[in-house]
Simulated scan of single mutants.
Amino acid sequence: MDELPLEHVRTLLAVVDEGTFDAAAAVLHVTPSAVSQRVKALEQRTGRVLLMRTKPVRPTGSGQVVVRFARQLARLERDARAELGIGDGQGPARLPIAVNADSLATWFLPALTRVPQDPPVCVELHREDESRTTMLLREGQVMAAVTSSPDPVAGCSVRRLGLARYLPVASPAFAERYLGGPLERDLPGAPVIVFDRSDDLQDAFTRTLTHGRTGAGPVRHHVPASEGYRDAVAAGLGWGLVPEPQALPLLGSGALVELAPDRPLDVALYWQQWKLDSPALSAVAGAVIAEAAEALRSAS
Rank of each mutant, 00 (worst) to 15 (best):
Q273P: 09
A82V: 12
L296M: 08
G252Y: 12
A235H: 09
L183C: 07
E258R: 10
G162A: 05
K275E: 15
L179V: 07
E124N: 14
D88W: 13
L269C: 06
A292S: 08
L50C: 05
V142S: 00
R207Y: 10
P110I: 06
Q141P: 00
G189Q: 12
T214G: 08
G140V: 03
R53T: 13
A154D: 15
G238M: 00
S278E: 08
L269R: 11
D277R: 14
T134W: 08
T60Y: 04
D277Y: 00
L28H: 06
K55E: 12
L237N: 06
L276I: 02
A260Y: 10
V35C: 09
D151Q: 14
G252D: 15
V57D: 05
L251F: 10
G91L: 07
V67E: 02
V288T: 03
R165P: 12
S226E: 00
L13P: 11
T210Y: 07
A190N: 03
L201H: 10
D231S: 11
R53Y: 12
A232T: 09
F21D: 02
D2F: 14
P245M: 04
L241G: 07
D277E: 15
V192F: 03
R114I: 03
L12I: 04
V49P: 00
L42W: 01
R160G: 06
L51Q: 01
D22K: 14
Y178W: 15
P59N: 03
V146C: 07
G238Y: 06
T133H: 05
S300A: 14
E244T: 01
P182I: 02
P264T: 06
F69A: 12
T206G: 08
G238N: 02
G19Y: 07
A14F: 00
S198Y: 12
W239N: 06
L4P: 10
Y166L: 15
G162F: 05
S33V: 15
S171D: 04
T60G: 04
P168D: 05
L112G: 00
A293H: 13
L6D: 14
R197S: 13
T46L: 13
A234C: 08
G91F: 04
L125W: 01
M1T: 10
D266E: 14
Q202G: 11
P168M: 05
G217K: 01
P119L: 06
D88V: 08
A24C: 02
R177E: 15
E43I: 08
L12W: 08
